[in-house]
Design a protein around this nucleic acid. Structure first.
Length: 122
DNA sequence: CTTCTTACA
DNA sequence: TGTAAGGA
C-alpha cells in the first residue's frame, strides 16, 4: 500500500504538508536547498526529512535571509526540532546589520518626504 | 488530475 | 513567486 503517510512524497504532498507552493519547492531544489530523487518519468520524489527541511527554509525566509544564505545556514540546524547551532550566529549578525541599515535608509526617506510635504502649497 | 520545463509579468 | 503554455 502507498499513501500520503509514507515517507516518500510527491511534490504535491510535500507542498500540502509544508504549505509551501509547488513553485517554491521547485525553486528551493534549483537553489540546492533540497535534493529530490526522480522517478522513471522524471517526477520528483521527496522524503519525510524534506518536510522538516522546507519548514526550516520557511523559518529562515521569514527572517528575510536569502536562499543563498539559507543554503549555508541549513546545516546549522541541530537534528530534529527548530534549534539552531552556533554556526548561524555570524550570518544572523550580518543580516541584522543590513536590515538595520535599510531601516535607517527608509527613515531618512520618510523624513525627506515629510519635509517635502511642507513645501506643498495648500 | 498531477507533474514537468521554459519563459514572462 | 505566480501563472501560462504545451507535453507526458
Amino acid at each position: 500500500m502507498s499513501g500520503p503517510h509514507d515517507d516518500v512524497l510527491s511534490i504535491g504532498e510535500l507542498s500540502r504538508r509544508t504549505r509551501a507552493s509547488v513553485r517554491s519547492i521547485r525553486h528551493y531544489e534549483q537553489s540546492g536547498l533540497l535534493d529530490a530523487a526522480r522517478t522513471s518519468t522524471g517526477h520528483r520524489r521527496f522524503t519525510a526529512d524534506d518536510v522538516e527541511t522546507v519548514r526550516r527554509i520557511r523559518l529562515l525566509l521569514d527572517g528575510g535571509l536569502s536562499l543563498a544564505v539559507i543554503a549555508k545556514v541549513l546545516p546549522c540546524f541541530a537534528d530534529e526540532g527548530a534549534t539552531l547551532d552556533a554556526c548561524v550566529a555570524e550570518y544572523l549578525r550580518d543580516h541584522l546589520h543590513t536590515v538595520q541599515e535599510r531601516i535607517a535608509h527608509l527613515d531618512r526617506q520618510r523624513e525627506s518626504i515629510t519635509r517635502l510635504q511642507q513645501l506643498v502649497s495648500a
